[in-house]
Amino acid sequence: MVATGALGAVGAAAVAWPFINNLNPAADTLALSTIEVNVTPIAVGQAVTVKWRGKPVFIRHRTEAEIKEAEAVPMSQLPDPETDNKRVTDTAKKVRPEWLIMIGVCTHLGCVPLGNKAGDPKGEYGGWFCPCHGSSYDTSGRIRKGPAPKNLVVPEYLFTSDALVRIG
C-alpha cells in the first residue's frame, strides 16, 4: 500500500512537472540577446534609456561631482553595501567611473524610476526617484531610502571600444 502510494506520488509529480515547467521562459525568449550602444552622443551629465530584454537600461554619463559624491558614501550608510567602483566595472575588469550602466527597474516592485530625463525628480540622494512607492537611489544607483531592498542591478556589459558598449 505504502509502496503503491509512494509510486503514485512520484508519478503524479513527474506528470505535473511538464505542466509547471511549460510556463517558464521559452528557448527563444531565453536566447541571450545583446545590444550594442554608441555612447558618444551622451554628453556629461546626460543619460539615456535603451531597451534590453523588454526592460529599460539606464546609461548615465556622470559628472565629476556625481562620481565624487558616490565614492564618498561610507558603506555603513548603505542598506545594500556596494562600492561605487564595483558598479562601474565592465566584464573586462576595466573601471570607467564616468559611465554608470544599470537596469532601470526599481528593486521594490518593478517600476521605472525617474531621474534620467532633464527635469525629472532625482530624489533626496540626487540619483533616481521611484514614484510608485517612493524609493530614492543615489548617484551610483544604490538604494538609500524607501521600500526597495536592493541597489539598481548592474547588468553584464563590455566596452568594445571607447565609443561602443555591448550589454548582455
Binding site: 510556463l23 525568449t29 530584454r53 516592485l109
Partner: peptide
C-alpha cells in the same frame, strides 16, 4: 504597470522569489 507591480510582489519571497516571478512572466519582464 499594474501587472508589473503585482507580479513583482512574489519577488519578495526569500530565495525562490525571483525564479517565481520569471515563471509567472514566462520571460524577463
Amino acid at each position: 504597470w499594474g501587472a508589473t507591480v503585482i507580479t513583482n510582489l512574489f519577488s519578495a519571497i526569500p530565495v525562490v522569489g525571483e525564479s517565481i516571478v520569471i515563471w509567472l512572466w514566462g520571460g524577463f519582464a
